[in-house]
Amino acid sequence: MTIMDAAAQSRTFARAWGDLVAGFGKRELWLHLGWQDIKQRYRRSVLGPFWITIATGTTAVAMGGLYSMLFKLELSEHLPYVTLGLIVWNLINASILEGAEVFIANEGLIKQLPTPLSVHVYRLVWRQMILFAHNIIIFVIIAIVYPKPWNWADLAVIPALGLIAANCVWVALCFGILATRYRDIGPLLGSLVQLLFFMTPIIWNESTLQAQGAGGWAKVVELNPLLHYLDIVRAPLLGADQELRHWVVVLVLTVVGWTFAALAMRQYRARVPYWV
């Protein structure tokens, strides 16, 4: 068999799917590595990962309080809104920025440990879900201070988080492969994500735009896909009405994203060890 034949055989959807399945099957490995990442980052720290919780909580309280005064919004409504927005944003932000570095950061393991590439992506998403669990404590405290009525429909947050995690996986796969090949992608994504933060309704909402006479921008904001990802998690936890269009957009983007991820894995999975 020639090198060309071997390369052609490696570029199949079966091999790409096999990598994803085999990587998920090594749960003990990536669960352990993800947990060790948290412990290593906060080694000899008394509060450990709760430092991130404190930082996120401080930012949420400061921004929620400031913008509620600036835009004359009820603090009891705006503070939980901003808090959830920041918590979900941190999860999405990490899947993009750390996802772009996921293979580069694991160069040693990729070259020395014969394991599916997807293991490193699952490790990243698992680590971010642990941090998300720490940060959600902030919202629990705020929900106790400013209680909201709940109903069974609010349990939709569970499949919503599952969709977010599934999207984090394909985002990290796509950007990880792309940024490994083209190292300028990482800094470019950093600038783009920073811009998206201000274009996403995290510290402001539609009523804020209307109050400032910019109601027409609401249609432009709808083009931002992150709006829909935020809403499917934030609306159930706030006890707000859930809109079907947000779920439809997220489901469509999930299918499209995984299609691109499958194509990227099929075509470039075997090349990543040579690029890192």
Rank of each mutant, 00 (worst) to 15 (best):
G85T: 01
L189D: 08
A261M: 02
Y229S: 05
L251M: 11
V121M: 01
Q36F: 05
T180V: 09
L29Q: 01
G85E: 04
V169K: 00
P273H: 12
L230Q: 02
G162S: 15
K72F: 10
L253Y: 02
V102I: 10
W217H: 04
P114E: 14
T208M: 11
R234C: 09
A143C: 13
L131H: 00
Q212F: 11
L86T: 01
S45D: 10
I203A: 08
E98S: 05
L84P: 10
A214H: 14
E28N: 14
D241P: 03
V82W: 01
S95K: 04
A218N: 11
I130D: 02
M129Q: 04
D19A: 04
Y146W: 15
F139S: 01
V252T: 15
I87P: 00
N224A: 14
T259I: 04
A165Q: 03
P147L: 14
L47K: 13
G176M: 06
Y182L: 15
I52P: 00
V61H: 08
H120D: 03
H120P: 12
Q112S: 12
V61D: 04
A133E: 06
W204E: 11
L223P: 02
V125S: 04
L188D: 04
K148R: 15
V255W: 02
I144R: 13
A6P: 05
L209G: 10
G190Q: 04
H228D: 04
T53H: 02
W89T: 03
I96D: 03
Q40C: 08
V82E: 04
V157I: 15
Q267K: 15
L178Q: 07
G257I: 05
S191C: 09
V121K: 03
M265E: 08
D37T: 06
T56E: 06
G99S: 03
V125W: 02
E74P: 07
V157M: 12
V88T: 05
G213I: 09
G18V: 02
G99D: 00
V157H: 08
Q112R: 12
Y81V: 11
A7W: 06
F260W: 07
V193D: 11
G25H: 06
W51Q: 13
W126D: 00
A153I: 05
E101G: 07
I138Y: 03
V88D: 06
V250S: 01
A156K: 12
G162V: 09
L237S: 05
N135S: 09
R269Y: 08
L33Y: 03
M63N: 09
R27K: 13
V249T: 14
E28V: 13
A166R: 03
K72W: 08
I232Y: 03
H32V: 07
L73C: 07
V220I: 13
M63S: 10
